[in-house]
C-alpha cells in the first residue's frame, strides 16, 4: 500500500508517521508537500498532527483550504483513503470532509497523556483488524480536541455507526472521567459516511513500537493492509 504523508508548515508528526510506515509497517511511503495536488500514485493519504500554518485563525482552518486538501475529494472519488490524526482530524473537519468541529479543551489545558479508546465500529478499512468493544491505548497531545457537533449531526453519527473511537476507561466504560477534553459523547474518532476518511485526535503513530510504550496504533495500519490483502480493494485501483 502506497502511503503519502502530508507536510504543512508547522506539521510535527510527519516524521513519526513516515518512520512507522516505512520501518515498522514496511510499506512504501513518501512525503507530500501541502502545495502538491498530484496524489495519483497513492492509496492512502495521511494528515499528521502538528500546528499547520501555526493554527492561525482556528486549528486546521488554513490547512483545510490548502491545495493538497482541495485535491482530496478527487483522490477519494478514485478509491483512495484518508487518515487524519490530531491536527489532521481538525483539518478534515475544517475542510468539511468530516462533520463537526474541534474546539478548545474544556479543561483549558493542553493534554498530553495516554488514553483508552473503546472501538465501536470495526466495519471500516481502518479498523477491520479489531473487535467491537476492544479497548486500545494511544496517546493524545492537543489543546483543541473537544469534538463538537449539532445534536442532529451527533444523532446521524450514531445511527450510521460513524463513531469509531470513544474515550473510555481501561475496562471500556464510557465515562465523564475518561473524557480528557470534554468531547461530545466522548468522541475521539469518526469516519465519513462512505467509510473512506477517518479522523481521530489520538496518535496511532506514537503507539507503534513496544519500546515507546505500546503497539495498539499499529492495528490501524494492519487493518489498512488487511483491506489490501483480503478484498483487493486497492489492487483494483
Amino acid at each position: 500500500m502506497r502511503f503519502g504523508v502530508v507536510v504543512f508548515p508547522g506539521t510535527w508528526s510527519d516524521c513519526d508517521f513516515h518512520y512507522v510506515i516505512s520501518e515498522v509497517v514496511k510499506q512504501p511511503v513518501k512525503y507530500v508537500w501541502h502545495r502538491d495536488r498530484n496524489l495519483a500514485d497513492l492509496d492512502c493519504v495521511v494528515l499528521p498532527g502538528g500546528f499547520s500554518y501555526g493554527d492561525y485563525l482556528r486549528a486546521g482552518a488554513v490547512a483545510g483550504r490548502s491545495p493538497v486538501v482541495e485535491a482530496l475529494p478527487e483522490f477519494l472519488a478514485g478509491g483512495g483513503l484518508v487518515l487524519g490524526s490530531c491536527n489532521g482530524f481538525q483539518i478534515l473537519c475544517e475542510a468539511g470532509l468530516l462533520p463537526g468541529a474541534l474546539m478548545r479543551n474544556e479543561c483549558l489545558q493542553y493534554r498530553c497523556q495516554s488514553t483508552s479508546l473503546l472501538v465501536e465500529n470495526v466495519d471500516t478499512p481502518f479498523t477491520r483488524a479489531l473487535r467491537p468493544g476492544q479497548v486500545l491505548t494511544m496517546p493524545i497531545s492537543h489543546g483543541e480536541g473537544k469534538y463538537h457537533a449539532e445534536p442532529e449531526t451527533l444523532r446521524a453519527l450514531r445511527q450510521r455507526h460513524q463513531v469509531v473511537f470513544r474515550y473510555a476507561t481501561a475496562a471500556g466504560q464510557v465515562t465523564r472521567a475518561a473524557n480528557p477534553n470534554g468531547s461530545a459523547e466522548n468522541i475521539a474518532g469518526i469516519i465519513n459516511e462512505e467509510g473512506t476518511v477517518l479522523g481521530l485526535m489520538p496518535h496511532p503513530e506514537r503507539a507503534a513500537e513496544s519500546a515507546i510504550g505500546g503497539t495498539d496504533g499499529l492495528q490501524i495500519f494492519h487493518s489498512l493492509l488487511g483491506s489490501l490483502v483480503e478484498d483487493g480493494t486497492f489492487t483494483k485501483r
Binding site: 482556528r58 482552518a61 483550504r65 475544517e94 463537526g100 468541529a101 449539532e150
Partner: peptide, 8 residues
C-alpha cells in the same frame, strides 16, 4: 469560506 466556522 474561511473567517468563521459556522458550526461553532
Amino acid at each position: 469560506r474561511l473567517l468563521a466556522n459556522t458550526i461553532l
